[in-house]
Design a protein around this nucleic acid. Structure first.
Length: 470
RNA sequence: GGUCCGGUGGCCGAUUGGUUAGGCACGGGACUGCAAAUCCCCCAAGGGCGGUUCGAUUCCGCCCCGGACCUCCA
């Protein structure tokens, strides 16, 4: 399968050519663990989880690294205000993050480096940058000299004049230029710190990713991902640090940035205070995790995505349709050649998940036609061949393709019927089947109406009745 | 103000210089004891003004509108 992706660096779609096809390497910026994940935090995790699954399908060996930032002033502030230690805050938040991302069926990355485990590497980078004239020490700080790097601004599409003009913070007196950014900063006794050639201190935000990517993926690697809001300054600064420290022409071959998630048309933001905690949304039911994942994948990853109640309900309804198909008894089948690749092909075209989902629906229709009856003519107008599979065949293709999207992992019966005691429901259905056999339609309808008030929907089949929760 | 990305039918949302996206909702039909599930049909679009072209939703220019970034942010 040919892959191509939109590269933020060149602002064009490029064929994906790994530096080493035998080992594809991807780095994605992970969370700063100071608070529970909000809805927007989930988007890059899901997007790059799908990308990792796709890469693993195409290439023999993939290393996907996603860091955890466990040293940051927001963490310090959270510890101070909550009365917990920094270690408690980071450990608990990281555990919460893992649980929430697992609820969205994200696979763990291959490597999950932590910033505090890479302090020595950060210090080495600072030393290298100072030695090569790209950084300087001043008043316990180490700062990157933006003017020393001609390509600074290339990734985010800015020139240095604009950046200086746009600098809106007060310029610290120890900076040579307003755009210079901190690699290392001093810590007083109340703050976490590590001994360094510049005194006891802690890393700046950007240096950690340069250090961890270097340690685990090398000086250059294939894909660097993250949210579009990280393009500047975070990724711009990462490139500057890594390229200047290693003397390379680039850091990652392809930079990929997911669009922002908005709520009712406004960006989710800590400072705006309009953010939804993912865990609160997940608490609404066992269906939410998958419905939210589908909601995310129904929009192309680079587009802005507006989260609404309606969109979540629609995603759930769509999953209901898939699980209705999967819950229907069908013989074990094997996908016809080409079926799965037909669905996944759009993923190779800059991760076009909406088109892949449209094709997944077509395979669902083929299974429904095979199993229930009807015409597949409309679907055949789109498929590469007039597939008319036996029952169970398209079903197998749906499951295989959905697995690359990280969808349809629930047990169909559990999805439709939920947990809890079902004996009373089964008993009522048995009574109704007896009434129907006796053509006592009034009694049959009375039982169904009673179940309807409990939120139970009956589906009569040939000689049997199945049920689901509405 | 600067930079960038968008504006597609009632809603969501892809592809494409000419040929059906798809989903949801609405309406009609098949099937069903009645339903549900399922299938079929129908519906309706491309912000505005110019330009290129035989032909533009698709390419170019301008304008309008929306969003993101401009050193907390996925």
């Amino acid at each position: 399968m040919q892959l191509s992706f939109h590269n933020s660096l060149t602002r064009t779609r490029e064929p994906f050519r790994p530096i080493d096809p035998a080992h594809v390497r991807m780095y994605v910026c992970g969370p700063t663990v100071y608070d529970l994940a909000h809805l927007g935090n989930a988007r890059p995790v899901v997007v790059f989880d799908v990308l990792a699954r796709l890469l693993r399908r195409v290439f023999p060996h993939v290393t996907y690294a996603r860091n955890i930032t466990d040293v940051d002033d927001k963490i310090n502030a959270r510890a101070r205000e909550s009365g917990k230690t920094i270690a408690e805050v980071t450990a608990q938040t990281a555990a919460d993050f893992h649980a929430d991302m697992a609820a969205l069926n994200n696979l763990p990355p291959d490597i999950e480096p932590r910033a505090t485990d890479h302090i020595p590497q950060m210090i080495v980078l600072c030393k290298k940058l100072i030695a090569s004239g790209h950084a300087y020490a001043a008043e316990g700080h180490v700062l990157f000299a933006v003017a020393s790097f001609a390509d600074y601004g290339r990734l985010s599409g800015r020139n240095q004049d604009e950046l200086l003009a746009g600098a809106r913070i007060d310029v610290a007196p120890y900076k040579r230029a307003p755009g210079d950014f901190v690699l290392w900063k001093p810590s007083d006794a109340t703050l976490p710190g590590w001994e360094s050639p510049w005194g006891r201190g802690r890393p700046g935000w950007h240096i950690e990713c340069s250090a961890m990517a270097w340690e685990h993926l090398g000086e250059t690697f294939d894909i660097h991902g993250g949210g579009a809001d990280l393009l500047f300054p975070h990724h711009e600064n990462e490139v500057a640090q890594s390229r200047c420290a290693h003397g390379t022409a680039g850091m990652a071959s392809i930079w990929m940035h997911n669009g922002m998630l908005t709520v009712d048309g406004e960006k989710m933001s800590k400072s705006l205070g309009n953010f939804f905690i993912l865990r609160d949304v997940l608490a609404r039911g066992p269906w939410v995790g998958e419905a939210f994942r589908l909601l995310l994948l129904r929009t192309h990853y680079r587009s802005a995505l507006d989260y609404t109640e309606t969109a979540l309900a629609e995603a759930r309804a769509e999953l209901d349709d898939f699980y209705a198909m999967l819950a229907r008894p069908a013989p074990e089948g094997e996908a016809l050649p080409g079926m799965v690749d037909w669905v996944l092909e759009p993923l190779g075209d800059d991760l076009n998940t909406p088109l892949a989902l449209a094709r997944l629906r077509d395979l669902r229709t083929l299974e429904n036609v095979a199993n229930v009856g009807g015409s597949a003519a409309a679907v055949h107008a789109r498929t590469p061949a007039p597939w008319s599979p036996a029952p169970g065949v398209a079903r197998a293709a749906v499951l295989e393709a959905a697995a690359v999207l990280g969808l349809l992992w629930h047990d169909p019966a559990a999805w439709r019927q939920g947990g809890g005691d079902t004996a009373a429901i089964e008993a009522a259905i048995a009574s109704r089947l007896a009434a129907r056999a006796a053509k006592d339609w009034a009694e049959a309808d009375r039982i169904r109406a009673a179940l309807t008030t409990q939120g139970i929907v009956l589906e009569d089949g040939a000689g049997t009745t199945s049920w689901r929760r509405a």
